[in-house]
Amino acid sequence: MTRIALIAHDDEKPEMIDFASDHADYLDDIEIVTTGTTGKRIEAETGVDVERKQSGPLGGDLQIGAEVADESLDGIIFLRDPLTAQPHEPDISALLRICDVHDTPMATTRSSAEYLLTGLALDDGVDLTA
């Protein structure tokens, strides 16, 4: 079964909620892992079930990185704020490195997230463009 991680910096959480809402039908059919606060909001605002790790400041991004190292994730969508990310928010550099080492795709913008999800859905035999 397809398994992806969803992470968002504070300013990008509304965009992640919108993304999850737009793709709720497909996301309900795959396994989703999230950092704590992002996952809490996704569940509350879209009804999509997720497995929540710790919040970013408490190491949730590291827990997700460990899943990449264990090759148990098919991709990561990390909507980040490249201009005003706060010190308490997850750092993307370690996740990028582990994704590169294990050839795991990571999307960092809404556009690239759409492509990543579409590609994974096609692998599952689902056409999100229909």
Rank of each mutant, 00 (worst) to 15 (best):
D123Y: 03
D70C: 03
D18K: 15
K13T: 03
S112D: 13
G39M: 09
R97V: 08
P90D: 13
T46E: 05
D10E: 14
S112T: 15
D11N: 15
I77F: 04
L120H: 05
P105T: 05
L96M: 11
F19Q: 12
T35E: 07
I30Y: 10
V126E: 12
E67R: 15
T37I: 04
S21P: 00
L27W: 05
D103Q: 09
T37E: 13
E45K: 08
E45Q: 10
I64L: 14
D124V: 05
E15R: 12
T46R: 13
L27A: 04
D61K: 00
I42H: 10
E51P: 00
E15C: 01
G60Y: 05
H23V: 06
M16F: 13
I98P: 01
D103H: 09
L128W: 11
T35W: 09
A113V: 09
L95N: 12
D29G: 15
M106D: 00
G65N: 10
F19V: 14
T104V: 11
G56L: 09
T104N: 06
R3L: 02
I64A: 09
T108C: 08
T108N: 03
A8V: 14
R41S: 09
D28Y: 04
G75T: 05
G56I: 07
R110M: 15
D49Y: 04
E12L: 09
L95Y: 02
D11C: 00
L116R: 08
A20Y: 02
A121K: 12
T37C: 12
T129W: 00
E51V: 08
D124F: 06
F19T: 10
V50Q: 11
V33E: 07
Q86T: 06
K53Y: 13
V33H: 12
A24Y: 03
L116H: 02
T35L: 07
L95S: 12
G36P: 09
S72K: 11
D49I: 07
D29N: 15
D127W: 01
S21T: 14
F78C: 02
S72H: 02
G119Y: 06
D22R: 14
A85P: 00
T108P: 02
R52P: 02
R80Q: 10
K13M: 08
H88C: 01
A8M: 14
H102N: 11
Q63P: 03
V50I: 05
I30F: 08
A66R: 11
G56H: 10
M16N: 13
D123L: 05
H102A: 05
L62I: 15
G36F: 14
L117R: 01
D25F: 12
R3T: 13
K13C: 05
D29F: 01
D10S: 10
G56K: 06
R52W: 07
D29C: 13
L116S: 06
D49M: 11
L62G: 03
A94V: 06
L122H: 09
P14C: 06
S21Y: 07
T35Q: 08
G65P: 00
G39P: 06
T37N: 14
G47W: 06
I32Q: 12
S93D: 15
V126N: 04
A69V: 10
L95T: 11
L96E: 11
G75L: 08
D124N: 11
L95E: 03
S93F: 15
